[in-house]
Amino acid sequence: MKQITAILEGFGSTLLLLLRALSFSGTLVRQRARFFEQCYLIGYTTLPIVAILSFFIGSVLALQAGYSMQNFGTQQFIGSLVGLSMARELGPVMVAILVAGRVGSAIAAELASMKVYQEVDALETMNIPPARMLVLPRLAAALVMVPVLALIGDLVGWFGGALVSKYTSIISIEPEAYFAVLRRYTHFKDVVNGLLKAEVFGFVVVLVCCNIGLNTRGGPREIGASVTRAVVTSLILILVVDYFLTQVLM
């Protein structure tokens, strides 16, 4: 019962934080420096790991598919499998998981530390709402940058699949043939749906991590506990939201 109450409280406080942050949307233009700083942190600093991970996901996908398909002689369709899987599912989900692990944890740690060391209280006494200064620029940056990361992840994953398809003896498909099949079966709508998913995941992750960080009570130990809670909650929510979004976008 206590856990159900805690979940409901968490849901309510997250919703309230969202509404509060949105009520300050008009201030985003004059907070552009903070917005660009967050774009840099969420986007640019996460890009290398997104590229590495996406490359190997695309590669492994092509390798596994090639291994299975050789029994049926259908290796020429590897491009469609990698293209659709990356665009519709693996690209957005993997990017969201990376954002949760890298960006979400950093947000939760920073805000939890600010809360524990009374910096958030100091903001409130200065009549500077934390939702305006600390949450809104991060949410806006997530909305912009996470789909960009997902798109780059898709492209790098497709490229990884093409390389494996060409240089693995059990597949041996030229990139032209690989990309021709990929283009034929992966439609613009599939890519857009994937980016939309990434946008929702990124928004949810940043919102949840901000809320958990800002509701931290106690000392340094609780900062660590908040980071763990923020990342675990984000990962669960990514998969739950993914299921419902996939249903809606089918």
Binding site: M114, Y117, Q118, E119, A122, M126
Partner: peptide, 18 residues
Amino acid sequence: TRERVRMALVFQSGALFN
């Protein structure tokens, strides 16, 4: 009230933005 009256609290720890 915080908009009507300018109040400033000096925290025990200082609560400076690190």
